[in-house]
């Protein structure tokens, strides 16, 4: 799906836990997430902490969208 969005001309960032799969499906901007059943959260944290964690991940995704890339790139930090 990311590839079709990219093909339509929109920059897209893929947020997922199993990044090697994201590489095989052809995502160009990839942000690793927490876990398969809760990519953007961690139920072990309290609500405020968890939202902070999510915010951090989304900020990373937005940073990826504002970064020029030439090839598939995993944004680790």
């Amino acid at each position: 799906m990311v590839k079709e969005i990219e093909r339509a001309g929109l920059p897209v960032v893929h947020m997922c836990t199993v990044t090697p799969i994201s590489m095989t499906v052809g995502a160009n901007r990839i942000v690793p997430t927490i876990a398969i059943p809760h990519p953007l959260g961690n139920p072990a944290l309290d609500a405020a902490e968890e939202k902070k964690l999510r915010r951090g991940l989304v900020e990373k995704a937005l940073k990826a969208l504002t970064t020029e890339v030439e090839d598939q790139t995993i944004f680790e930090d």
């Binding site: 969005i5 929109l10 897209v12 960032v13 893929h14 059943p37 990519p39 953007l40 989304v58």
Partner: peptide
């Protein structure tokens, strides 16, 4: 008129 997309996967 969307400029960019965030796709999430589980």
């Amino acid at each position: 008129g969307v400029d960019a997309v965030i796709m999430t996967s589980t």
